[in-house]
Nucleic acid binder design. Structure first.
Length: 646
RNA sequence: GCCGAUGUAGCUCAGUUGGUCAGAGCAGCUGAUUUGUAAUCUGCAGGUCGGGGGUUCGAAUCCCUUCAUCGGCUCCA
């Protein structure tokens, strides 16, 4: 007998060799149908694997990530089986579960192309196979045997993977006629894979290396119930409606022009208003926190970037230098503001007493992004960073860094960005030539970031190889409508640029000392920030950000005069207001202006003229009753003040 | 940049196998209506069907090429 301890602390005895699934069945047959994986002594395993020692056991139902993972991973294998039966000779790369569903990278052979038109066929075959209730069976094999099996299939991708694995750790999973190299875990059988949807095909380089062959990646998702799949598809449809590219067009916020060039956003008046509101708001916050605002040109001499090291690192992949007609000088479009700011630092002498120095600029920068990388406002070739650089003494670094974390959290809170993640990006220690600066500087900087984040109790994930080339960073990521993560705020510790630009300050010992530099943004860029804001709010901006606060809707043209008076009062009170004087019925006017997401609709008819009031309707909420005009003005002002109280 | 898909009026989309296939709704402009909380009615105007080349008696439709966009990959100072 073995003793199994459950998460609630209770323990029961079972016969040795019992599987998690059998335990679930003994608890309740219904439970057995709802579990998809088990954690045995901390290790996630197949439900069908026997347990031969005392253990803790957690059974995973659909709600657990571990269950979804096994479910989707098994789905990937099912898809592979379907593919192999439909397209004999197809070769397989990797097929993991991902955050939402799964994919498989396949090489269909040079003659064959899998397109979205084929997805339905594959999906149908998957359903046929799943209905056969095929069991997934696990087998441990020697490296030699594994290589033999996949060489026989001439599956070079699998043999490459196997050749890198240690002998004794290799497992195969088989369902029906399909066997795959796999660590597992998997479902007991294909039976629960009922609702299946293949979503898209895309190209993906083998092992993520652009020098290697491009495989075909097929994305799909499955659910244990059709209802869950239907809900997911509805969610995707709704997400499409929140897409910032779509709302940007609908609400006339920004546009792109082929003539101007790809990735170069054109901000329309209303979009510009939102930008300006953000800039004004942030500028106010920054001034209170001791920042000095600076302004620098959009181009810089190529030598500036040679000094900073950017030219060596990115010169070939940047917009190429602009040459002057006469003197043979070369200028680059500014790809970042830091070198300019270093030179501003150098323009005046600095004392240790003046530190830290906080220098901010809404700086527009230009970066050459590969054409296939461009994406709405989130990835563009010209964008405005809410950039700042803190120059501080080494002993101030920790506090300075922590104050920036506070600032970012504060701004995110005001904007209701609650669903963000923080990521610490370190350099790849096996690939040091990608970075500039000494090991000592890097180690110091990485330690500072890790410790500062820890002191702020910030929940972070650590990723190696994602650092900037001059220093490690702490990034704040926010998701868009369909769950893609975008980096917004970033804080980067840099010991390298101060050396390259020979930045100094006089210490109390009257000696020259080297300051530490912190690069930071909060929004990241106004472009990306507005994009994420649009997707998070579905275009219903908070009042303080809305380009237009209210629209006046006269019930008939008889009331246009009074409406005009109200309009004047509101606009003179700095409440940007429109008027809809069309000879439409009030229902129509309300509908049209609701769809424009203007926060307040002010309806004016006979009663309002008589009482010198306005009938206030809040966008998305309906009638709020009437108010005096002055009352409305102070109401709006107090609402705005509440939103951006600081 | 790479793989795949898409590209028809300002927007959303119809256009079977190449032969009145250049259409609809919304938006716009007209005129009527003068309206009380999410769509009043009338009429008009709008497109060299992304650009270029080709096949054909004939191309939105087939082929080539190019540009852009979308989904990914790679990249992201």
């Amino acid at each position: 007998m073995i003793k199994i301890t459950f998460p609630d602390g209770t323990a029961r005895e079972y016969k040795n060799g019992i599987s998690s699934l059998e335990i679930a069945e003994q608890i309740s047959p219904r439970l057995a149908k709802e579990v998809y994986a088990a954690t045995v002594n901390g290790e996630i395993r197949d439900l069908t694997r026997p347990i031969d020692h005392d253990a803790t056991l957690k059974l995973h139902k659909w709600e657990d990530e571990a269950a979804k993972h096994a479910f989707w991973h098994s789905s990937a294998h099912l898809m592979a089986e379907a593919l192999e039966s439909l397209y004999p000779g197809m070769k397989f790369g990797i097929g993991p579960a991902i955050e939402n569903g799964f994919y498989y990278d396949v090489d269909p052979g040079d003659e064959r192309v899998i397109t979205e038109a084929d997805l339905q066929t594959i999906e149908n075959r998957m359903k046929e196979l799943a209905a056969k209730n095929l069991t997934f069976s696990r087998r441990e094999v020697s490296k030699k045997e594994a290589l033999y099996i996949f060489k026989k299939k001439s599956d070079e991708y699998k043999t490459e993977l196997i050749s890198e694995l240690a002998d004794g750790t290799i497992t195969l999973y088989t369902q029906g006629n399909f066997t795959d190299l796999c660590r597992g875990p998997h479902l007991p059988s294909t039976e629960p894979l009922k609702a299946i949807k293949l979503l898209s095909v895309a190209g993906a380089y083998w092992r993520g290396n652009e020098k290697r062959k491009m495989l075909t990646r097929i994305y799909g998702i499955t659910f244990p119930k059709q209802k869950l799949l239907d809900d997911y598809l509805v969610f995707l449809e709704e997400a499409k409606r929140r897409d910032h590219r779509r709302i940007g067009k609908e609400l006339e916020l920004f546009t792109f022009s082929q003539k101007v060039g790809m990735g170069l956003p054109l901000w329309l008046p209303k979009g510009s208003d939102i930008r300006q509101n953000l800039i004004n708001f942030l500028t106010g916050v920054l001034r209170k926190r001791g920042y000095k605002i600076v302004t620098t040109p959009h181009i810089g001499n190529v030598n500036l970037y040679k000094t900073s090291g950017h030219f060596e690192k990115y010169g070939a992949d940047s917009f190429q230098p602009i040459s002057t007609p006469q003197e043979g000088e070369q200028f680059m479009l500014k790809p970042m503001n830091c070198p300019h700011h270093c030179e501003i630092y150098n323009a005046t002498p600095h004392s240790y007493k003046d530190m830290p120095l906080r220098m901010a600029e809404f700086g527009t920068v230009y970066r050459y992004e590969q054409s296939g990388e461009l994406h709405g406002l989130t990835r563009v070739r010209s964008f405005t960073q809410d950039d700042a650089h803190h120059f501080c003494r080494p002993d101030q670094l920790r506090e300075e860094f922590k104050s920036i974390i506070d600032l970012i959290l504060y701004i995110f809170k005001i904007l209701n960005f609650n669903d963000f993640t923080a990521q610490i990006s370190l350099r790849d220690p096996n690939n040091k030539q990608k970075y500039i600066g000494s090991d000592e500087n890097w180690e110091r900087a990485e330690r500072e970031i890790i410790e500062a984040a820890a002191e702020k109790n910030l929940e972070t994930t650590v990723v190696t190889g994602e650092a900037a080339f001059y220093g490690p960073k702490l990034d704040f990521m926010v998701k868009d409508a369909i769950g893609r993560k975008w980096q917004l705020g970033t804080i980067q510790v840099d010991y390298n640029l101060p050396e390259r630009f020979d930045l100094t300050y006089n210490g109390s010992d009257n000696q020259k000392h080297r300051p530490v530099m912190i690069h930071r943004t909060i929004f990241g860029s106004l472009e990306r920030f507005v994009a994420v804001l649009i997707e998070n709010t579905a275009g219903k901006f908070p009042l303080w950000l809305a380009p237009e606060k209210a629209v006046i809707l006269p019930i008939s043209e008889k009331f246009n005069d009074y409406a005009g008076k109200v309009l004047e009062i509101l606009n003179n009170s700095d409440i940007c207001t429109l008027i809809d004087e069309r000879s439409e019925k009030i229902g129509k006017k309300i509908r049209d202006n609701e769809l424009k997401r203007i926060p307040y609709l002010l309806i004016i008819g006979e009663k309002e003229v008589e009482n010198e009031t306005i009938a206030v309707r809040k966008q998305g909420e309906g009638d709020k009753g009437s108010m005096k005009i002055e009352e409305f003005v102070s109401f709006i002002n107090s609402e705005i003040k509440k939103e951006i109280a600081f």
